[in-house]
Simulated scan of single mutants.
Amino acid sequence: MAAAPLKFSKYHGLGNDFILVDNRHSKDPVVTPEQAAKICDRNFGVGGDGVIFALPPVGDTDFTMRIYNSDGSEPEMCGNGIRCLAKFVADVDKSAPRKYKIHTLAGLIQPELLADGQVRVDMGEPILEGPKVPTTLAPTQGSTVVKQDLVVDGRTYQVTCISMGNPHAVIYSCDGKPIKIDELRKDFATLGPKFERNAVFPARTNTEFVEVVDRSHVRMVVWERGAGATLACGTGACALVVAGILEGHVDRSKTCRVDLPGGPLQIEWRESDNHIYMTGPAELVFSGSLHA
């Protein structure tokens, strides 16, 4: 880390919390992945699910997003994180609510700060082809992996694989029975890693377990690749709505409310442009300076 103190702000989106750094003066993050992991430590550091950097723009964009997870790994994108990043840059620049064009490792993502304080994000199109997710599970609908069986710890989970620029395994049923979130919680810490690092996911995976409330309302818990159990996952909420529509649990014609452990997101998969739109909060917790 640089000799000078690192200025940062901490934001959260539904409890999914991040350390935000204005890094627009340099094309490289000012801290290493190893340092980021230490910063995310909740006992010896600031504490967070990741460190997010606002970097200079690439092409016709406003700026670039990069993120290091709490284990030092680098994901392609983060849905809750990009809402926090948009709010952070607006706060730093003291700019009015606006729409940003942000370059990410998952491509162009466009968050818009709304007048009511929420952030709506155009997440682009979902990637449905199994090999591009990536997964080695056999496709069941054309090139898409929908409700494919995967045995973990002697139980057969029905898995749908979606990429939102990062990989997701979405599970609505196990042994042919609907998921019940409350029944999962006691074993979640041991179950989650067995999906994340399963051999059928060559880039590892985020995993969402989903319980249907009705055709426009679901509940979920998430095990995030590189971060473990978190209170929210924006890309996961998008992926599970796509999976729910493909499996026939959710209506595409309606906005779906997704209840995450940290609160609700509103997700819409529009037929007009095939893009997914996510709407939710991003809130400042505190700002400070970190010394090496």
Rank of each mutant, 00 (worst) to 15 (best):
C84T: 02
T135Y: 03
A96D: 14
V21D: 06
M278G: 03
S272Y: 01
F209N: 01
L55W: 00
D116T: 07
K27G: 08
C40I: 04
S289G: 03
G13R: 03
M77N: 12
R197H: 15
A2Q: 13
V119L: 00
Q148P: 06
I162S: 06
G15L: 09
I52A: 12
D182I: 08
F18R: 00
P281E: 08
E224M: 13
E211S: 05
E224T: 05
G124F: 00
A86I: 03
R257F: 00
R270W: 02
L85F: 07
V121P: 00
L85T: 00
P167K: 00
L55T: 01
K180Q: 14
R219K: 15
G280F: 12
N166Y: 02
H275F: 05
L137N: 11
V46R: 04
N69M: 07
D149C: 10
V213F: 14
M77D: 08
I127S: 15
T32H: 07
V218I: 15
Y157R: 03
Y172F: 15
A2S: 13
G226M: 04
A232V: 03
S163M: 12
V146T: 09
G47R: 10
K147F: 11
S287M: 01
S9W: 00
E34K: 14
V212F: 10
H103D: 13
L108K: 04
L150H: 04
D273N: 15
Q118S: 14
D187N: 14
Y157P: 00
V250R: 09
L114A: 11
G192Q: 05
I162R: 06
N43C: 09
D28R: 11
T61E: 07
K132T: 02
L113A: 02
M220F: 14
V250Q: 08
K10M: 02
T230V: 10
R42N: 10
L108S: 01
I39C: 12
D22S: 12
